[in-house]
Amino acid sequence: MSVEGKESMSKQDEIIVVGKFGASYGIRGWLKVISYTDIAENIFDYKPLHANVRGEWVEVSVESWKRHKGLVCKLDGLNVREEAQTYTNLEIGVAASALPKLSEEEFYWRELFGMQVINVQGYGLGEVVDLMATGSNDVLVVKANLKDAFGKKERLIPFLDGQVIKSIDRTAQRIEVDWDPGF
């Protein structure tokens, strides 16, 4: 079965990218999988998975998976290398509703995008446009306001809960930080 043979999602639930398909593996339709989940193999716990085919999310079903210098999987209906190659570099997504519910103190990164960042003195530092994983701690990428008094275009603020991040208000879409606006 080719990418074109999959049916599009009927209900447009928000899809969250959790990985992508890599190169084909072997001659029987297997694909390498790059997982963005905390524990890589957890990507296969989500049902159903979707592939982003030319901007459309289509449902895919994993027939089998295994660890082999990373992760590889076989999708239902893909039986030869050439068919699997049509999935190379496609994003893998899941419906947002399939993600585990978090406690009030926990956040998915996607929830922080667009929040306004204000320091403890009340200065508006800008809006969260990205997050970076650095290995030691995550970093907020904050696009500065148009008329930033300190001439900043972007700020990188370490996501250190309690130390730098003082509060996150989902309702107000605001993050309060202990951060010097000149830095």
Rank of each mutant, 00 (worst) to 15 (best):
V3N: 06
G5S: 15
M9Q: 13
K11D: 10
V18T: 07
G19C: 10
S24C: 12
Y25G: 00
G26M: 04
G26N: 11
G29R: 02
L31W: 05
K32W: 03
S35E: 02
Y36K: 11
D38T: 15
I43H: 00
K47W: 03
L49R: 07
E59G: 02
S61Q: 15
E63V: 05
K69W: 08
K69A: 09
L71G: 07
G77E: 09
L78M: 10
A84R: 02
A84I: 11
Q85A: 15
Q85E: 15
N89S: 13
L90A: 05
L90W: 03
E91G: 04
A95N: 11
A95C: 03
S97Y: 03
A98K: 12
L99C: 06
P100C: 02
E104V: 03
E104H: 13
E104M: 06
Y108K: 01
R110H: 14
E111F: 00
Q121S: 13
Q121L: 09
G122S: 06
Y123K: 06
V129G: 00
A133D: 15
T134L: 10
G135E: 11
N137K: 13
D138K: 13
A144Y: 07
N145C: 08
L146R: 14
K147L: 10
K147N: 14
D148Y: 02
F150S: 03
R155I: 06
I157P: 07
I157C: 08
I157L: 04
L160K: 15
D161W: 14
D161R: 13
D161K: 13
V164S: 01
K166A: 01
T171Y: 06
A172W: 01
G182T: 14
